[in-house]
Design a protein around this nucleic acid. Structure first.
Length: 521
RNA sequence: GGCGGCAUAGCCAAGUGGUUAAGGCAGAGGUCUGCAAAACCUCCAUCCCCGGUUCGAAUCCGGGUGCCGCCUCCA
């Protein structure tokens, strides 16, 4: 099935055609490593991770490159503030970024180039641009001359003459045109510097991506991605630099993800509403975050609120519930043989159709400009059908051959599609343990776990002896039909964050998690 | 001022002209339960406004209105 994607360059959805039959080169602008990453970064990284996974799912051989900007003004400023070298700052935040990405279960790109490892190549390209007359040197700085590149503005739809030049830019007198931008910056004393034909200095911001993307993917490659904000000037400038240097078209398809708002406000340092990935991961399982991020189309803005996150949490629990149900119903039993459509009728026939149609529908959704929201909807639909059907069959959990067959196929289908979104990667029992704090069916086992301090932090908050006596009291009260007392104890435990649930099999317990630990202003 | 995007139920959200407008959350009613919880069942929209194209439009075109982003570092 053909993949269509929205190309910022043409402002249309286009049929995706790789340059080399089934190989894809993909470059995504990474981060400037001067601080912890926030949920906006998380969105970009998760979105492009899903795109990367999907391309591979479709059978493309993808070379994925994502850079680190490890030298720039902000890093230098941070280093000076903390009395560290810029390398130390960069190293620290590269490590932090890596741990965030790993926690968010993103796949590692094949190449993660750093600016400081590519200085000779950068100098070479700048030299080429100067030689070709696209750039000029002033006092050790090299600027790109925007007016020499006739199609400047083609990505962002801007027109140089109409750009209110200088309106919001501090005009640098040394530039021939206010829109010109730095390729090479002369360094001040105490700043990182490399020798160059124009004296000591360091690369400007945009040139690195031109150089590193072309180095690893060729002068013309397939996909280039990043946040919406990078369209102008960053990506516009990349095009200007690259195409001027090589005379070839740079990137065929430009993809840009939308921004995250927090409670309908732009996330910004001045508003003080920056939420870091670490804060979020502290409270929410990575797959809940991925589910939230992928439940909207990647180009739309999305609003971060605790309510929305709670929805995603519910969704993930329901999905895992299906896996758990399937696991319990199938146990170790393998389906005896394959069945055909005509073998099923009624509810089972509907489930059969849904399961066997899942992959097609999933592909169709994803082929439509990576519509993860719709794709996720289809996955949830299957999950819901399974849960509902099994519930109706009652508690015996003795599936016939045909149902066994359906359940196995459902599981395969769910896992196969969900992995493209990077969800349902945990074993259900582990997921519930991590997220819901799996309900303990056995109260004495729970108390023992508290005593052993197996449950993080609970021993400090709860006296196991007190807990033991409360539980015993309540059991006694229930036996005596003393419902008032039983309810009272249940309420007391609830205040301590313990939820008692009476089921036909007995009383079980689960730990209530506080959903409001993250503070969002 | 320039460029771009969005407007679908209480909320979030999919929907690239054609059967009953995905899905989720919340809510209401129900099953189960001593009660509650969990789970399951049922119910819950004609798509911002006005014109136009068409046999037929949420979907295409024009005009309004209202939001938002970018034009400065930014995912």
């Amino acid at each position: 099935m053909p993949l269509n994607l929205y190309n910022t360059l043409t402002r249309h959805k286009e049929l995706f055609k790789p340059i080399k039959d089934n190989q894809v080169g993909m470059y995504v602008c990474g981060v400037t490593v001067y601080d912890l990453c926030h949920i906006g970064h998380a969105r970009a990284m998760v979105v492009f991770d899903a795109i990367y996974r999907y391309l591979r799912y479709k059978g493309y051989e993808v070379k994925y490159v994502r850079n680190y900007t490890d030298v720039d003004d902000k890093i230098i400023a941070r280093a000076q503030k903390e009395g560290l070298s810029y390398q130390e700052v960069a190293e620290r935040y590269i490590d932090e970024f890596n741990s965030d990405m790993q926690a968010l279960k993103t796949l590692k790109p094949q190449v993660e180039p750093r600016v400081t490892h590519h200085i000779p190549e950068i100098i070479e390209i700048i030299g080429k641009l100067v030689a070709k007359g696209y750039a000029y040197e002033v006092e050790g700085n090299v600027f790109y001359s925007v007016s020499k590149f006739s199609v400047y503005g083609k990505l962002s739809g801007k027109n140089i003459t109409e750009l209110m030049a200088g309106a919001r830019i501090e005009v640098d007198e040394r530039k021939e045109n206010p829109m010109d931008f730095a390729l090479w910056k002369a360094s001040k004393p105490d700043e990182p510097a490399w020798d160059s034909p124009w004296g000591k200095g360091r690369p400007g911001w945009h040139i690195e991506c031109s150089v590193m993307s072309m180095k690893y993917l060729g002068e013309n490659f397939d996909l280039h991605g990043g946040g919406m904000d990078l369209i102008f000037p960053h990506h516009e400038n990349e095009i200007a630099q690259s195409e001027a240097a090589t005379g070839k078209p740079f990137v065929n398809y430009w993809l840009h993800n939308g921004f995250i708002n927090i409670n309908q406000e732009k996330m910004s340092k001045s508003l003080g509403n920056i939420l870091t990935i670490k804060q979020l991961l502290n409270q929410y399982h990575a797959e809940i975050i991925r589910c939230f991020l992928l439940s909207r189309h990647y180009r739309s803005p999305i609003d971060f609120t605790l309510g929305h996150l709670a929805e995603s949490k519910k969704i993930m629990s329901n999905l895992y519930l299906s896996l758990k149900n399937i696991q319990e119903w199938t146990a170790e039993k393998k389906p005896g043989r394959g069945f055909k459509e005509e073998d099923f009728s009624g509810e089972e026939a509907r489930i059969y159709h849904a399961i066997f149609g899942l992959k097609d529908r999933f592909l169709k959704a994803m082929d439509n400009d990576f519509n993860t929201a719709q794709a996720l909807g289809y996955i949830i639909q299957i999950s819901k059908m399974i849960n509902s059907h099994l519930e109706k069959l009652g508690p015996e959990k003795e599936p016939g051959e045909k149902l066994l067959f359906l359940l196995h196929r459902a599981r395969e289908g769910l896992l196969d599609t969900a992995q493209v979104l990077g969800i349902l990667q945990e074993k259900p029992e582990n997921y519930f343990l991590l997220v819901e704090t799996e309900a303990y069916e056995d109260l004495s086992a729970f108390i023992a776990a508290v005593e052993n301090n197996d449950i993080c932090g609970l021993k400090e908050r709860l006296d196991p002896e007190w807990l033991k006596s409360q539980v015993k009291e309540r059991e006694k009260a229930r036996k005596n039909n003393d419902w008032n007392k039983a309810d009272k104890i249940r309420a007391e435990l609830k205040e301590k964050g313990l939820l008692l649930e009476d089921t036909p099999k007995g009383t079980r317990i689960r730990i209530k998690k506080d959903p409001n630990i993250i503070e969002v202003n």
